[in-house]
């Protein structure tokens, strides 16, 4: 039996981080191919409420691990709890959404299980446990590799843009357990400087308007258009490096990977690391003064021109059409 265990992530307010639903779909695909059961684990000070939410999403069992030492989702607290559970329920696959928290904790869980791990998986290939493989990006997505992992337990993180969110499907069982607290916490979160925004979250928005070096740091036209469209604001690496916008807005290989219905890139030249973070978008618009900019190679619609002129015009046109 090849059971699958997905680690659930909560948002700072304790509610479900939606990315978990994408990971549950990856888990369900593996379970279907290998004939195993899909399990999930919630770890929190009081895991019960969130476990009751997760049980609705096609999961056989949600394990609710509660404890004061789990109040913060730190790798050294989470790893032993997940690893012990994985062994207890005979999980052959342990996965998480490839969020920052998922990327932080899953390799530590894998280390504890002496398991190899595939990061940012894009798809599950094969039809049984014997031939199960994953595809994953390498070289900033310039190459898609198919990989086979040969440890008894296999760990993975799933790229959220590549798996749809799990839908509600019946009600699974919630099983409470009490993970042992480590002798000493190795890490504590002292503070969190949140990027507050009334706009939709970058990774969940239907439309994203991103600005690059061409903005020279002036994001007013970007934000104006974004607000007219109800869109999220994104940025290129150069913009975040210069401190013009918070790092949390960076779209790209090492920032957020997004796949909205519409992505508008303004003043972004289109380095491969940026393109890696947005090329899954349904429709891509590029606006750039340099007609030779690489961004035009991935754009469905390219406009060679000054963003300071084009974006306000576009904003006015969107407004007029409402």
């Amino acid at each position: 039996m090849s059971n699958v265990l997905i680690v659930v992530e909560a948002q700072p307010d304790g509610s479900l981080r939606k990315a978990t639903l994408n990971a549950l779909t990856a888990g369900a695909q593996i379970a279907a191919k290998t004939g195993g059961e899909l399990h999930a684990v919630v770890l929190a000070k009081d895991a019960g409420p969130l476990a009751n939410v997760v049980k609705e999403y096609g999961v056989k069992v949600v394990h609710a691990g509660s404890g004061a030492h789990l109040a913060q989702f730190t790798a050294d607290a989470v790893a032993p709890a997940v690893a012990e559970l994985a062994v207890a329920i005979k999980a052959s696959y342990v996965g998480v959404a490839a969020t920052q928290a998922g990327r932080d904790v899953m390799p530590r869980i894998a280390a504890r299980l002496k398991a190899a791990m595939a990061s940012e998986i894009l798809s599950v290939v094969g039809s049984s446990a014997a031939d199960l493989q994953f595809t994953r990006p390498m070289w900033a997505g310039a190459v898609i590799a198919t990989v086979k992992l040969s440890t008894p337990i296999v760990c993975f993180s799933a790229r959220t843009t590549e798996f749809p969110q799990a839908q509600k499907a019946g009600s699974g069982e919630v099983r409470a357990f009490t993970p042992a607290a480590p002798a000493k916490a190795l890490q504590k979160v002292v503070s969190f400087k949140e990027v507050k925004s009334a706009r939709p979250a970058l990774t969940e928005a239907r439309v994203v308007v991103s600005g690059g070096r061409g903005t020279k740091g002036d994001f007013k036209p970007i934000e104006g258009l974004a607000d007219e469209l109800g869109a999220a604001v994104g940025a290129s690496r150069a913009v975040c490096d210069a401190g013009w916008q918070p790092n949390d807005l960076q779209v790209g290989q090492t920032g957020k990977v997004v796949a909205p219905q519409l992505y508008i890139a303004a003043g972004i030249s289109g380095a491969i690391q940026h393109i890696a973070g947005m090329k899954g978008s349904k429709t891509i618009v590029a606006i750039n003064k340099d007609g030779e900019a690489p961004i035009f190679q991935v754009a469905d619609y390219g406009l060679v021109g000054d963003l300071f002129k084009a974006l306000p015009e576009l904003q006015a046109a969107v407004k007029a059409a409402k």
Partner: peptide, 11 residues
């Protein structure tokens, strides 16, 4: 660098 902002941790 975490999702949603910057977190300060003491290790």
């Amino acid at each position: 660098e975490v999702d949603g902002g910057l977190e300060t941790v003491e290790c």
